[in-house]
Design a protein around this nucleic acid. Structure first.
Length: 574
DNA sequence: CTAGGGTTAG
């Protein structure tokens, strides 16, 4: 090993580096370019180094070498101002200095961190000119930039063009698909990878399992889990954590607990947080609070996400006292509450019908309330039919310039429930004049490995007529059980019969009807919805679970609802 | 003079 390397290795603090520099200066060694480069690199990259100091040395060099530029760009790329790496790279280009594969690699890393797609494309064209196309590592970096900046099509075509790929290349694209809302593509690629005889590693399965979580694809999730066990990848904490998340989000929180309890590696903070969040999603509040206590006993310090998870669990289970107690305990454990934590408290009060307390709490907060907070209060006002509070929350939302469809719908529903049609009309006019954004609601169900997606009033499915007939059958049966459509959930001022029709064909009902048609009597049905479940659907699904004797689980935006024998696991409290 | 760079959960 070179002389300078052995000395740098012995440095364990920044002052050691300075001592070394002084030594080099007094002995004349600092004039050796290789030494200078090493020193800059070490200062720029090492955790005990100092990027500003590296830059000071660098700026004093008259004609820095490519390696020295690289060291600075690399340091900047991983600093909290990665855009400076791009600026530095541009300066280097102006100096007409030779850039090598590493220069490109580091600056591309910076591009991915600041989502600079345009700059990445420029560098892409440059590295084609430089002749770095055969470099697998560099191509993979480039692929990753495209994926992270959301240009998945470019990432995919780069992947297809690469004659040489290694496991990291596959991983980059699988992870890219998984994180870029294309989980189905991620899973397909994972399958192709196995068909081609490649061996997915722990990083690959992280992407694949995350894709399963998003899709609620339990069958495929179990298959990947089996692979993880075959290859002994479950000694990795991250893999275990993503397995816990996958089972939770696929509706099997018991299996998530099994994975959590039987981990042979030591649990990380994320393990605890994921498990608590999983319990929260399933409404297992007491269990979540117990786990939170256990976590403290085991010596893992909670962070902001831990509190968010356990507060969320209290919310979903209606544990108002526990939630408030936990929120108050945050200060003592040194975790500063963020706006999201304040939000859960508003939710806690709101769900319990304590609207005045919720309002008081918002008014006394040390930070400015955000849109989500007022939406929470508005939602609670809707649930409890409190017109005055709903108006207060809506006013705040309008002042903040909210143009989210849901806000208007909620207020409109509050009026509709009181049959105040003039006010409903006023809200509708406001919606039209403000060009509000509508987030389309959709639900999906997986049948024999094929995902079927439905929107409200969907007639695009090849079997739509059969599905609608099934729904008509359902409605005629459930009427016998005293079902009356909860028409207050409908926005428009229309006749009662039309109102019922508007509810009949909600996406979650269509998906469940399709599930009833396509699956064997008595087998469970699982549906995933992108928004919160509608109140009328909630009532209807409860009755379906009883008269068709099916266990139905619906994962909505926030949590699971498990319907069985006419009851829902959320206890109608959500 | 050499090597160094890529994929990673809540």
């Amino acid at each position: 090993m070179a002389f300078i390397d052995s000395l740098l290795q012995k440095c364990s603090s920044f002052s050691h580096i300075k001592q070394l520099q002084a030594y080099l200066l007094t002995t004349g060694h600092s004039q050796i370019p290789a030494h200078r480069t090493k020193l800059i690199e070490f200062c720029s990259i090492s955790p005990i180094g100092n990027l500003d100091y590296a830059r000071d040395i660098f700026l004093r060099v008259k004609t820095p070498s490519t390696n020295e530029w690289n060291a600075i760009i690399r340091g900047l790329a991983r600093s909290n101002e990665p855009n400076k790496a791009i600026v530095c790279y541009q300066a280097m280009s102006r100096h007409q200095l030779r850039r090598d594969a590493l220069t490109c690699s580091f600056v591309l890393k910076a591009c991915s961190r600041v989502l600079a797609l345009l700059e990445a494309k420029q560098i892409h064209s440059q590295l084609v000119r430089f002749g770095f196309r055969a470099d697998v590592l560099l191509q993979t970096t480039l692929l990753d930039v495209y994926a992270k900046t959301g240009d998945l099509d470019n990432a995919k075509s780069l992947f297809d063009e690469m004659s040489l790929k290694d496991i990291a290349t596959w991983n980059a694209l699988i992870a890219g698909f998984a994180q870029g809302s294309r989980p189905r593509d991620a899973l397909n690629l994972f399958e192709i990878m196995r068909l081609e005889g490649l061996k997915p590693n722990e990083i690959t399965v992280l992407g694949a399992l995350s894709a399963c979580s998003q899709l609620g694809a339990i069958t495929e999730g179990k298959r990947v889990h089996a692979y993880v066990q075959e290859e002994c990848l479950d000694g990795n904490v991250q893999v275990c954590n993503v397995l816990i998340d996958m089972y939770s989000k696929c509706g099997n929180v018991e299996k998530a607990c099994d994975v959590f309890d039987s981990m042979r590696c030591s649990k990380s903070l994320v393990s605890w947080n994921t498990m608590i969040m999983g319990l929260a999603m399933h409404g297992h509040g007491i269990h979540a609070v117990e786990l939170f206590k256990k976590m403290g006993i085991s010596g893992v310090r909670p962070d902001g996400a831990t509190y968010l998870s356990v507060l969320c669990a209290c919310n979903h289970a209606g544990l108002v006292e526990d939630g408030l107690r936990l929120f108050k305990s945050m200060a003592g454990s040194g975790v500063a509450p963020s706006i999201k934590h304040f939000g859960t408290v508003v939710d806690l009060f709101g769900r319990a019908g304590k609207l005045d307390e919720a309002y008081e709490f918002i008014s006394s907060m040390p930070i400015i309330p955000d849109v989500v907070l007022w939406q929470t209060l508005l939602g609670a006002s809707k649930t409890y039919g409190n017109v005055e509070m709903a108006e207060r929350a809506s006013r705040a939302l309008v002042e903040m310039g909210s143009n989210t469809c849901g806000d208007f719908v909620l207020l409109s529903n509050v009026y509709a429930a009181q049959e105040r049609w003039d006010d409903v009309g006023r809200v509708r006019d406001a919606m039209i004049s403000r060009d509000v954004r509508k987030v389309p609601g959709f639900s999906f169900i997986e049948i024999d490995g094929v995902t079927h997606k439905f929107v409200n009033w969907d007639q695009s499915h090849s079997n739509w007529k059969e599905i609608y007939r099934k729904l008509d059958e359902i409605f005629s049966k459930i009427r016998v059980y005293g079902y009356v459509a909860e028409t207050s959930y409908v926005l428009h001022d229309i006749g009662e019969e039309d109102k019922e029709n508007a509810l009949y064909y909600h996406s979650e009902k269509l998906a469940i009807a399709y599930g009833l048609i396509c699956t064997i009597d008595g087998s469970p049905i699982q549906v995933i919805k992108n928004l919160r479940i509608c109140g009328d659907c909630h009532v209807v699904i409860k009755i379906i679970s009883k008269i068709y004797d099916r266990e139905i689980s619906v994962r909505d935006r926030a949590r699971f609802h498990r319907f069985k024998d006419g009851f829902c696991s959320c206890g109608d409290y959500w």
